[in-house]
Amino acid sequence: MKILVPIAKVPDTTSKIAFTDNNTKFSPDGVTFIMNPTDEWYALVRAIELKEKQGGEVVVIHVGLADSEQIIRKALAIGADRAVRVDADPTDAYFVAAQIANHAKSENYDLIIAGKETIDYNSYEVGGMVAEMLDLPCVALVQKLEIENGVATITREIEGGTETVEIKLPLVICAQKELAEARIPNMKGIMGARTKPLEVVTADATEKLTVITGYHLPEKAKECKYVSPDNVGELVRLLHEEAKVV
């Protein structure tokens, strides 16, 4: 089985978020970049587990500049077989999806496993867009995935529970929590990652559908109103009369 896993580079959750150029650009100063958690912990690890069980190949693809090499090597250290980097600074999700779809067209993947969302733009876009560009079925918010005889059995989140569906391969999956347990690369993996193939390709020209015209930081931090533990009734009164939420 041949599986493609798109990985994104995002600011670490604990990063302080700041903007420059009159609040029109994200400032990378002092920010630590990491592989997007749902891509790494769930999508990539499940792909590797499926390969370990059934044989095949796991390819990771990343759209980004040369400074992304560290996260690509990490994906290889965790267990991907080879990597493709599309050499471009991503403009929007449509651009990223178009690059991934163009690559997938020439490789005949059985399965594409993306993460559920990136923790920077929280958009849930790339998986669904790639599926539409390739005219493939797609299931999002996937918590379980088993493959047998070319058919995927998938459990996904729905309102108030889960739903289980069967779909024939090829297809696109957007992974979330519970799909796999995060793996930490071991020394053998880290050493091996240095020599695994990393192909750098040029980007295809694509239309730009959206433009971010400005960022806004919250105006001020919330002021917490403290209530004494001996006067819980006062809190209930405030929630009822002041906040009007109960």
Binding site: Y94, A97, S123, Y124, G128, A131, A140, L141, C174
Partner: peptide, 9 residues
Amino acid sequence: KLLAPRLSV
């Protein structure tokens, strides 16, 4: 979350 990006394409 899945239908909207597909529609956009």
